[in-house]
């Protein structure tokens, strides 16, 4: 089972190494990890997708909590949340097939960000399923290069994951 964790951490040097090292040494599997700053410059936010049963999730959460730089951890999977991932894909494209590719892009509301003589580069955002589907649709044309950001996620409505937020999942 996959869990999506929203983790608030002190924006200190080395905090990523602390979190990554913990996952590696405790043998937890990270599906994806995305990190960036928040509205508060002292605080960074990681969205970590972890694979594992409830027991593993419990250990992951507790062990993460032991890191001094980790301020808050919420498993947002059981809640209503918005999640997005950004993918940039460079596809092989003869002028003849460009139209087809643009149609695929339209369906997924992807945007063309670069056009070369033999390539076309597209960006697309969406949840995991959409990105996977987009990737699959482009595969027949020949994917030259692909990069994904990993998932970021946020609770809907009046629920927050913030340092002094209303949602206390720890």
């Amino acid at each position: 089972m996959r869990h999506t964790l929203a983790v608030l951490v002190e924006n200190n040097p080395g905090v990523l190494a602390r979190v990554a090292g913990l996952f590696s040494r405790r043998g937890f599997n990270i599906d994806s990890l995305a990190v960036g700053r928040t509205e508060n410059p002292d605080v960074s936010r990681m969205t970590i997708v972890v694979e594992g049963d409830d027991r593993i999730l419990e250990q992951v959460t507790k062990q993460l909590h032991k890191l001094i730089d980790v301020i808050k951890i919420s498993d947002i999977s059981p809640e209503e949340y918005v999640d997005r991932e950004l993918v940039i894909i460079k596809v092989h494209s003869d002028p003849a097939r460009r139209g087809e590719i643009m149609q695929v892009a339209d369906i997924f509301r992807a945007r063309i960000v670069d056009l070369g003589r033999k390539t076309i580069t597209l960006e697309c955002t969406g949840n995991n399923g959409k990105i996977n589907a987009f990737e699959e649709s482009l595969r027949p044309y020949g994917i030259k290069e692909l990069v994904r950001t990993g998932k970021i996620a946020m609770l809907r409505g009046l629920r927050f994951t913030s340092v002094n937020g209303q949602k206390d999942d720890d």
Binding site: G21, S24, R25, R26, G27, F28
Partner: peptide, 14 residues
């Protein structure tokens, strides 16, 4: 026993 602070366990690769 890895990752459980077992006897004589150290994360030597880390």
């Amino acid at each position: 026993l890895l990752g459980r602070d077992s006897f004589q366990e150290a994360d030597i690769t880390g």
